[in-house]
């Protein structure tokens, strides 16, 4: 399997000198899903955003399909990478159809082409185009907005999909539905997905590989089963904290 994304000794420091990425080296295989876990401030989102140069690394390099992102035209690079965030970031003044087709519009595709593609994508993410195409984001539920966000990210047929806590703001039931949809999509579309999440269950359900970051460094880089069985103190601490969080939530519910 070929490497789709490679982080080569990647560093990022803020202007104030705070080191957020500290020499990260990873190679992500094409068609796989990698979950990036870690506490807040561990550098997960920063790492994700170096791929589409929303954050410019201060040292090292990121290669997408073997080519340095620095040597790729910024607009072309970003159009070739799907991007999904927690708040969906839908354009409130555009209909669902126009939101989904905006990248194609920016690339100069015809209206007929855009409509056809956005309808196909809405079906792919489980939304009926005849019902949802003409709706505005404020007329959608949180889950529907995220589905549209995923459809939009897929519009330009990207090989790489970056997802930054995409389902973090959804209720547990909707989140589970979205995770199921994503798993199905990933199996069908064979995209290289980088998923930043706080949710270990989500990572285990969706990812082929789990990377644990701490203070900008890779602490563990394991398959989900190996991650769960790892005796590494940092992984154990993460698992313990996660189980305690789930336990507390269950206790709170039953109380």
């Amino acid at each position: 399997m070929s490497t789709a994304i490679e982080f080569r000794n990647l560093f990022f420091a803020t202007r104030q000198g705070r080191l957020l990425l500290d020499g990260i080296s990873l190679a992500l295989e094409a068609g796989t899903t990698t979950a990036i876990l870690g506490r807040s401030g561990s550098g997960k989102t920063t790492l994700l955003r170096t791929v589409n140069r929303m954050v410019e690394a201060t040292g090292g390099d990121v290669l997408v399909s073997g080519k340095s992102v620095r040597d790729t035209d910024l607009i072309a690079l970003r159009r070739g990478i799907g991007y999904v965030i927690q708040e969906s970031g839908l354009f409130p003044h555009f209909t669902v159809e126009r939101n989904v087709g905006l990248v194609l519009e920016a690339e100069g595709h015809s209206r007929a082409e855009r409509v056809q593609r956005s309808h196909a994508l809405l079906e792919t993410v489980g939304l009926d185009p005849t019902t949802f195409s003409s709706r505005y984001p404020h007329q959608l539920s949180g889950g529907q907005r995220q589905r549209v966000g995923v459809a939009r990210a897929l519009a330009a047929e990207p090989k790489v999909l970056l997802m930054d806590e995409p389902f973090g703001a959804l209720d547990p039931l909707t989140r589970a539905e979205m995770q199921e949809m994503m798993r199905d999509l990933m199996a069908r579309m064979q995209k290289t997905v980088v998923l930043v999440t706080h949710d270990l269950d989500e990572a285990l359900y969706l990812a082929d590989r789990i990377v644990l970051l701490s203070s900008g460094k890779v602490i563990a880089d394991l398959a989900p089963e190996a991650f769960m069985q790892s005796t590494m103190p940092e992984v154990q601490a993460y698992l313990h904290a996660f189980r305690r969080g789930v336990g507390n939530a269950a206790h709170g519910r039953s109380a």
């Binding site: 929303m54 072309a76 159009r79 991007y83 970031g89």
Partner: peptide
């Protein structure tokens, strides 16, 4: 978030 996505999706 809207501006972030506008940049990330490659709008000039």
């Amino acid at each position: 978030a809207v501006m972030d996505v506008a940049r990330a999706m490659g709008l000039t």
